[in-house]
Nucleic acid binder design. Structure first.
Length: 486
RNA sequence: GAGCCGUUAGCUCAGGCUGGUAGAGCAUCUGCCUUUUAAGCAGAGGGUCGCAGGUUCGAGUCCUGCACGGCUCACCA
């Protein structure tokens, strides 16, 4: 037998039907929403409210209920907020009060009609003249005071989390706002938003394990994209000089507080710009988003105080590793690899990887305020333009913030011959067991038609949202993070 | 993949070290209650203690395995 609480409610549904009441009607049209009523009428004095004859109808879910003998208080919540309702016998009559007390439960949706008054404690409340059951809920809501805490239930049944934990809803509203602000900022600067394929014949643009899938009619294996990069650059070749894409990307790797198998990335490309121009652009973009969202450029993240005031610090990757670890880093492979191995870094004899990992484990982890780290080794940057003065490094930077990487950007490599050599070099690394960028002949073909000098950047949107909402885990900013089936 | 921690009523949690047939608050049901807001008072019902084995006269409690989740590390952007 099922839970008694559910049984009771199913019984109520039966009884309602037997007396000719539809427990799931669809003909109630609210005239107002909660915030509309509260914000407008909170400006009136108590006396003025008494004299207002306005009537309102509102709809929402009952989230709290306090019943008395001849009256009832409750709160309903709609998309905008919550408001108290008051039902009393001498206003609404015996029959309706009894119906309410018998059939209406916490969790149900109801529509109410009435006018406003203020209670003794000053809470603006709807004096209910009439109500209607809109949707019967068969399950009880989680506990009113502690909310829903169980992390597994929160993720598996996010709707319960959203109903009972207002701060969770707040985080997701902020997420939506952040994404909108990114679009606003870029649209304003003449960037065009585009959509490129998610099903890729070659999983390019990054080094990661892809998800595989299969197309029946074409009889071919496809991969879910690990990055939109190579398609966006094809569009640059096609004349879209300023493009961006904001969307889902997939990587078939471990899950953690920083990684979800599908995540949201924003990539942008701007022709006739350099990676240094993009430092300025990203500074402006993230400051715009932060300040508009939070009203300030300073915020707490976990135990850190982050200050985003411009200009942001810019440090050279190799110079900072040299000064931390030792000058020999560059002159002696032996020293470099020994040092990396001692820190447990699996570099597989790739110099660039060892250097970048050394940086991440030492200096990168300590960075709190936003810092551009520039000058990445060429062997870990196969899509980035070689530096004109030093062919061992590329014109690439990453943005570090609160100990994490938030953005990756570079002047794009637009020399097709060099690009081909870089891909071939990657295949070398692949034979050492590394995950690498795959050869993409079709992309090289696009470059052969000429891509104007361009700089591009990618921002991990989930991680940015984590920072701006002080969320310790990526699962707190993704509605339905992936879990094993129960 | 490894280590640690967790899983007890619809929800939030005690109990576990030291084995003796399961407890609280909220929610539900009954009664009283017309300005409450974690309403109040009185009473009642509600449990495969994650699953499967083992030890024991007896297991929520001890042991082993498994599942799911969390954190850390590894791997990986």
């Amino acid at each position: 037998m099922e839970n008694e609480l559910v049984e009771q409610r199913k019984q109520k549904v039966k009884e309602l039907r037997s007396i000719g009441v539809n427990p799931f009607p669809n003909d109630f049209k609210p005239s107002h929403d909660v915030v509309g009523v509260l914000s407008y009428y909170s400006s009136f004095s108590d006396e003025e409210i008494k004299n207002l004859s306005d009537k309102f109808s509102l709809a929402g879910r009952i989230i709290a209920l306090r019943e008395f003998g001849k009256s009832t208080f409750f709160h309903i919540m709609d998309r905008t907020g919550k408001i108290q309702g008051y039902i009393r016998r001498d206003v609404i009559g015996d029959e309706k009060l009894n119906f309410f007390k018998k059939f209406i439960d916490i969790g149900d949706f109801i529509g109410i009609r009435g006018d406003l008054f203020k209670t003794k404690t000053g809470e603006l409340t709807i004096n209910v003249k009439d109500f209607k059951l809109i949707t019967k809920s068969l399950y009880p809501l989680p506990e009113k005071w502690h909310g829903l805490k169980d992390v597994e239930t929160r993720y598996r049944q996010r709707y319960l989390d959203l109903i009972s934990n207002p701060e969770v809803k707040e985080i997701f509203l902020k997420r939506t706002k952040i994404i909108k602000l990114i679009r606003d900022f870029l649209n304003e600067r003449d960037f065009i938003e585009v959509e490129t394929p998610i099903l890729h014949p070659i999983a390019g643009g990054a080094a990661a394990k892809p998800f595989k899938t299969y197309h029946n009619a074409l009889d071919m294996e496809l991969f879910l994209r690990i990055a939109p990069e190579l398609y966006l650059k094809r569009l640059v070749v096609g004349g879209f000089e300023r493009v961006y894409e904001l969307g889902r990307t997939f990587r078939n790797e471990g899950v953690s507080t920083q990684h979800n198998p599908e995540f949201t990335i924003m990539e942008l490309y701007q022709s006739y710009a350099t990676y240094e121009d993009l430092m300025d652009l990203i500074e402006e973009l993230i400051c715009f988003v932060t300040e508009t969202l939070l009203g300030a450029l300073e915020f707490d993240y976990e135990d850190m105080k982050v200050n985003m005031k411009r200009p942001w610090r810019r440090i050279n990757l190799i110079e900072s590793v040299k000064s931390r670890i030792g000058e020999e880093i560059l002159s002696s492979d032996e020293f470099l690899f020994k040092k990396a191995t001692s820190l447990g870094i699996a570099h597989k004899g790739i110099r660039g990887k060892a250097i970048v990992e050394l940086f991440e484990r030492t200096i990168g982890d300590e960075i709190v305020d936003p810092t551009f780290v520039y000058g990445f080794p060429i062997d870990v940057s196969p899509l980035a333009r070689k530096n004109d003065l030093n062919p061992e490094i590329t014109d690439r930077f990453e943005l570090y913030l609160a100990g994490r990487e938030v953005a990756n950007a570079f002047s794009e490599l637009n020399d097709p011959v060099d690009q081909k050599e870089r891909f071939l070099k990657q295949l070398d690394f692949k034979s050492k067991g590394e995950e690498v960028h795959e050869m993409d002949e079709d992309f090289i073909g696009a470059l052969e038609h000429g891509m104007p000098p361009t700089a591009g950047a990618g921002i991990g949107v989930d991680r940015l949202v984590m920072l701006l909402t002080n969320s310790p885990s990526i699962r707190e900013v993704i509605f339905f993070p992936h879990l094993r089936p129960e």
